[in-house]
Design a protein around this nucleic acid. Structure first.
Length: 686
DNA sequence: GAGCACTGC
């Protein structure tokens, strides 16, 4: 294989130790289109402090850009940081770049993510998650360790990315020599360029194949005659699940090969789609794909089989996972999106039409191996009139955490921070109100400043609501227990319910269920796990988790966050680990705590007083007249069926022993409760 | 009677 060396190596000097750093400066033109533009990009890097690099996935920008920065002289006055939105990407890309450069991974090219730092003082190219770079801002706002910062996948516009971009805008004024590279999908570059004083945009085309778009209106899908049918009423419109099933059948009946990817907004729709497809698509492999599947279930999409595959997925297939072999995409044009409602203090998960940028991304998934086809179950008009971009997360999120961390970082007030898109004034007020409720801020004159509590919360790597529980635990002397709960509330629920084994999973989980508190259920799970994690090998540990329908990686993450929180607290002398039940925390294992928890009212109360410190606005009272629960901010909801406190509603027919019309015998939930979270999905659930 | 996706010194 001949590889064209675009630029020849020169003796490379890294700032910290002044040691020469020889590596291969080769850009493989046969593999990556970006190589053809290498010279142009290097020139731009030398002429401008900030450049925007636009290119679709597959253009090779992620792996080639660090090398181009080195070629342009980056890495000589400090390290090169390259951020990724996800841990897996940071790890895999860093390994590949180390290999391409012919250096050892973990030395010259390293990777730093939470719980794993594979860098040394010799590291010149440092891959990391964007959250990790943000965390470094706290101890070093100037980011003086780096001479070049690459923000990759900036179009994803996560809170972390928008936060970093705002900070870099300010930092580039103070450190004019700092090189900044922002990479993004092609469609989304104007805002970035404008934010950085009209920084040049360089576009590199991706190595993708053309994808034909077919608009199949749901109400016209059943018949080929669309003309004269414009007035089809909405009531006759096909449900998008039926539409997708129909579209898949058409693809199957007119084509012989090529995998099919279907985008659905919810897990429930995915199950339905697979049910409906099952009867007629037996010759194919039907694969569901969504975030709550276990790792092994997710891995199915990467194992090739002889049969044609139909993958039915949520958004996860839009950004997080790249699927091989897709030729056909069926796009419902819908997705579930998280939106925080400041008035109701509630997170909502509505199903919404996707933005153009998202629809384009979905379409692109069909053109990675050959020409493809994308069937959109909506009209071209809907596509054209849709939002250009999904609202960035900063405009959809609860801002309490953002405001708190900005103040702690000394970045000033959120109202004056140079975000690319400003969050709404209403959302900002709501963020302040929540911080005020948590006693994290106080008004001193016209400005609102952090209190001691606020400063302590900012130091804890958890949401301020959860941090409040930990701070209260110091007073209650329940640090050990509450830190377990706090870490548990910071990860996704480790309990798994596989599609085909829901009964068995529920039965296994019942072993842990505390009848009066889901918070104590978390303690029970951790207690059962504790000894196992210390004693079992990883293989046996995985098996133990599988037996109890617990996700291994989520359990490990829970343990890691738990350990990180304890480390953070131990570093402070006034925060000794204490346990509710004997005050001799260091000898109390979670197992022992659990045994005590089953009996002591005092223990129960103590722990829940801590939890309550963060959840004042999530207290709810049973409403016997109208049913359900009433919560502050004019909310009315029900206990989520996954909760240990959930009580089945009684059917109309009363059981044999019950007196007719005697309401008092109806099973009821507790009179009062407090919810870790109140989320609106199909209904409002606590 | 059931909830998209990420991430943190």
């Amino acid at each position: 294989m001949s590889r064209e060396a675009i630029t020849l190596g020169f003796p490379f000097v890294s700032a910290p130790n002044q040691k020469p750093f020889p590596f291969r400066f080769e850009f493989p033109p046969d593999l990556l289109i970006i190589s053809a533009r290498a010279g142009e990009i290097v020139d731009a890097l030398q002429e401008h402090n900030v450049i925007i690099l636009a290119g679709e996935t597959g253009s090779g920008k992620t792996t080639q850009i660090p090398k181009l920065c080195l070629t342009a002289g980056g890495g000589s006055q400090g390290r090169i940081a390259c951020t990724q939105p996800r841990r897996v990407a940071a790890l895999s890309v860093s390994k590949r770049v180390a290999e391409e450069m012919g250096v050892r991974w973990g030395r010259e090219v390293g990777c730093k993510v939470r719980f794993s730092d594979q860098t040394t003082k010799d590291t010149v190219v440092k891959f990391m998650t964007d959250g990790m770079l943000l965390a470094e801002v706290q101890s070093d706002p100037q980011l003086s360790e780096y001479d070049t910062i690459i923000i990759d996948e900036a179009h994803e516009r996560s809170l972390n990315i928008d936060f970093l971009l705002g900070h870099l805008r300010l930092l580039s004024l103070r450190r004019p020599e700092l090189r900044i590279v922002i990479t993004s999908a092609t469609i989304d570059t104007a805002a970035f360029s404008k934010a950085f004083e009209d920084a040049p945009v360089i576009e590199v085309s991706g190595r993708t194949y053309p994808v034909e778009v077919v608009y199949a209106l749901l109400d016209g899908l059943g018949s080929d005659e669309a003309e004269g049918n414009e007035s089809t009423s909405k009531a006759e419109a096909l449900h998008y699940v039926d539409g997708a099933v129909e579209a898949v059948h058409r693809i199957l009946s007119t084509t012989a090969a090529g995998d099919i990817l279907v985008f659905m907004p919810t897990e429930r729709d995915i199950r339905e789609t697979i049910d409906f497809l099952g009867s007629e698509a037996r010759k194919c492999d039907l694969i569901p794909l969504f975030g709550r599947l276990s790792n092994s279930e997710q891995q199915r999409v990467f194992t090739a089989t002889a049969r044609r595959r139909i993958i039915v997925a949520t958004n996860i297939a839009e950004t997080s996972l790249t699927l091989p072999g897709i030729r056909y995409v069926v796009d419902t044009g819908l997705s579930r999106l998280s939106r925080y409602s400041p008035q109701a203090r509630t997170r909502r998960l509505p199903i919404e039409p996707v933005a153009k940028s998202s629809a384009d991304q979905r379409k692109g998934r069909a053109g990675r191996v050959a020409e493809g086809v994308c069937v959109r179950l909506y009209s071209e008009k809907d596509y054209e009139e849709g939002l250009r971009f999904t609202h960035p997360e900063i405009q959809r999120a609860n801002l309490a955490d953002v405001i708190l961390r900005m103040k702690a970082l000394g970045l000033g007030d959120i109202e004056r921070f140079p975000f690319i898109n400003m969050p709404a004034a209403k959302a900002i007020r709501s963020g302040y109100a929540l911080l005020d409720e948590l006693h994290a801020i106080e008004a001193t004159g016209p400005e609102k400043e952090l209190t001691n509590v606020g400063r302590e919360l900012a130091r804890l790597p958890v949401d301020p609501i959860v941090g409040c529980m930990i701070l209260q635990a110091r007073t209650e002397k329940a640090v050990r227990e509450v830190v377990i709960i706090a870490a548990g509330l910071s990860v996704q629920d480790p309990r798994e319910r596989p599609l085909d084994k829901q009964g068995a999973a529920d039965a296994a989980h019942r072993r842990f269920t505390h009848p009066e508190s889901d918070f104590l259920t978390l303690l029970e799970i951790r207690a059962a796990l504790h000894d196992q994690f210390e004693q079992l090998s990883q293989g046996r540990m995985r098996r133990w988790c599988r037996d109890y329908f617990l996700g291994y990686s989520r359990m490990r993450e829970w343990r890691d966050i738990h350990a990180q929180l304890l480390d953070t607290l131990r570093a402070r002398r006034d925060f000794q680990p204490s346990s509710v039940w004997d005050g001799q925390a260091d000898t109390a294992t979670p197992e022992e705590c659990s045994a005590k928890l089953r009996f002591g009212q005092a223990v129960y109360r103590s722990i829940h007083r801590c939890v309550l410190a963060g959840l004042l606005s999530n207290i709810a009272a049973r409403d016997d007249e109208k049913g359900g629960y009433k919560a502050p901010h004019d909310r009315r909801g029900n206990i989520f069926p996954g909760s240990g406190l959930f009580v089945k509603e009684e059917r109309k027919r009363s059981s044999p022993g019950a007196k007719a019309g005697a309401n008092s015998n109806k099973p009821k939930g507790p009179r009062w409760m407090m919810a870790a979270e109140i989320v609106e999905t199909s209904r409002l659930y606590a």
